[in-house]
Design a protein around this nucleic acid. Structure first.
Lengths: 119, 119
DNA sequence: CATGCAGTACGATCGGAGTCGTACAAGAAG
DNA sequence: CTTCTTGTACGACTCCGATCGTACTGCATG
């Protein structure tokens, strides 16, 4: 155990590359959210995350790892989630404040969403 | 001129096939709205339609007719717009009440949207 | 160092969506 | 009837995204 440099006030690692708040585009965000699996990811984060970041494994998604990488990157690059590297884990949370500022009401729709059978 | 059967109280033609309110799916609607051209169509209808139905031509979109057919059908089949046949014209309007009932706040986001340069 | 684990990178495949040209259908108007 | 107009139908092309297997990187732990 070594003493670590603290890159942020709370000692968090830097976020992975993501669009700034002003760069968020509605069409890009809607496209990211138009996939049922990603909708499920975001909804679970909104309803059950309890303000923690979570790894891919936490979601219990029955997909190969390479598929999950694809979807989590899609969400991050659209600006829906933020990802940080904690050791060998990459944890995600929804950018609630940013999204509510730019697209008020959108996350409420996601939280209220119910998956179709099979999703 | 023959005496016509009136299919609706106001004497409007029947709507073209579309999903019922209860069949509207968030992921389908978001997918339909994730295209900049369709976002432009819906936004223009919301801001400038003055409660009238409008033909493809009214939008002044610089695309071939077959492309417009494609996008207007995508909007209708997702449940975003309703289309009726008036003679040889096919006019569209946004299903405001249905969408507000199922996805409150969504149309506000579309109305507030601003196209990127080039859209 | 050796092993195990989280996740990425790369590349292949596949299907679906956007784009459009052309031909066609149907109502409107002369 | 002939012509014009609005829009569809069909098909081709292209591109992107979803899916996944395999190989790899990087950290952690014994």
């Amino acid at each position: 155990m070594t003493i670590e440099v603290l890159p942020e006030p709370a000692g968090l690692p830097d976020p992975l590359p993501e669009p700034a708040v002003g760069e968020l585009r509605l069409e890009t965000v809607l496209s990211a959210l138009s996939d049922p699996l990603r909708l499920r990811i975001v909804r679970k984060l909104l309803l059950e995350s309890e303000d923690f970041d979570h790894t891919c494994g936490w979601f219990g998604l029955d997909r190969p790892k390479s598929s999950l990488t694809h979807h989590f990157r899609a969400l991050r690059e659209a600006g829906v989630t933020r990802q940080r590297q904690y050791g060998l884990e990459r944890r995600s949370h929804v950018r609630v404040a940013d999204l509510n500022a730019r697209f008020p009401g959108l996350l409420d729709l996601v939280a209220a969403w119910t998956p179709a059978d099979g999703d």
